[in-house]
Design a protein around this nucleic acid. Sequence first.
DNA 1: CAGTGGTCTAGACCACGGG
DNA 2: CCGTGGTCTAGACCACTGA
Lengths: 240, 240
Amino acid sequence: MTTLARAPLYARAEQELRARIAAGEWKPGEALPTEAALSAQLGISQGTLRRALGVLEAQRLIERRQGIGTYVTEATSERALFHFFRAEALDGGRITPTSQLHRLETAPARPEEACALSLPQGALVHRLARQRFVAGQAAIAEEIALPEALFPGFHLPLGVELTDELYVHYQRHHGITVMRVAEKLSAIGAPESIAGLLGLAPGAPVMHIARIAFDVMDRPVERRLSWIETRALRYAIELR
Amino acid sequence: MTTLARAPLYARAEQELRARIAAGEWKPGEALPTEAALSAQLGISQGTLRRALGVLEAQRLIERRQGIGTYVTEATSERALFHFFRAEALDGGRITPTSQLHRLETAPARPEEACALSLPQGALVHRLARQRFVAGQAAIAEEIALPEALFPGFHLPLGVELTDELYVHYQRHHGITVMRVAEKLSAIGAPESIAGLLGLAPGAPVMHIARIAFDVMDRPVERRLSWIETRALRYAIELR
DNA sequence: CAGTGGTCTAGACCACGGG
DNA sequence: CCGTGGTCTAGACCACTGA
């Protein structure tokens, strides 16, 4: 683990704070104690605490505002879309898709799902299938698996236009904050079932994305397969 | 600019050091002065200097090694591949492609090239076309444009297997270090010319990537179009 | 105005690497 | 051993916010 006694103080403080936030000691939107109070409580100097807070801020787990205080970052549709939804219009403009769930079931994880989510054989997952629309056109099909253990009693209305991002829902209703996603992209010919959903001919080129999302403690919490029709969309990323 | 007199000291120090590195005061692989010497030279405390160095280190412009010193990061094939070449095998294993240049010309920039590289109409670019092979199979076709002004006298042998990454070549021979790339991905049917190069049927699904690469001072220095055959490859990225 | 986070400093001490 | 960067502290002062 990273919580070795040998690790620097600031790193241990960072882990301590991360764990406390993950445990819900301070919930999204709430303020942490002041730097003076926190450093006294942790028995470290303010400078060392600030270094730990700086890391958490860089990871967007917290937000610091001069003159106000330090807050646990709250997931918003805005932010979720901006950070983790990389599709944009051909001209680079932002896109705000709507979405509609058309299947929701709870079943034993398939082998690929269990593997992606580090679940034992036979563990239950909630499985969602949905479409996302851009300018009234179906542009994205998705199949999502969530560990039942992390999302007990998960539910969403079928067939209704959803405005909020799923990640906002995860945080508000299940206390799970997505911090990082890993994706593997490929270009494939649309399988028949997907082609139907997206209004394409079978075999037409679509972008396929296999995503695993990780939470604050870097545990895998969602596996998502996406099929994206990229005639009117671009998937924009930045590497540095 | 970011070099306002009002900006914090550490930010001004960071910009100052970045500019000096870009200007070649310390070349890739060379050591910067010690922290004590640098802080004295810049008239700031060691703590403030360390903060500036921390930013440059996070951006991988420099590397600090305890007991040794601070060095300007040198581009290596290893690093260039790892950071900016996101293709991997289906099982997640790394891939080391070979490449072969089959066209090299210098001509006025096309409108899209001029736009991508912030060049005036009619400015000259070097235009490269190459193929990249994975396990002996042509898997990637690329067309690359470089501003002639930044790469005077650019040349590479045609038709030979190249081992070094292009970005290593940019740094070694033209003093240009790529720090960041922006990409737009889509899935398209392979155009006839590309299909021929990749051994695909015309219209077969390929991943298309339009990339712009930026240097140390965040100027656009390369525009690259790639067509990737993703039957044996995945494009792996991480968002956080 | 009081209280918050942001900047900057000076200095002690530690850990590492090489002569 | 010495010189390097890495950690940690204590404290002064600034800049912003809201009552």
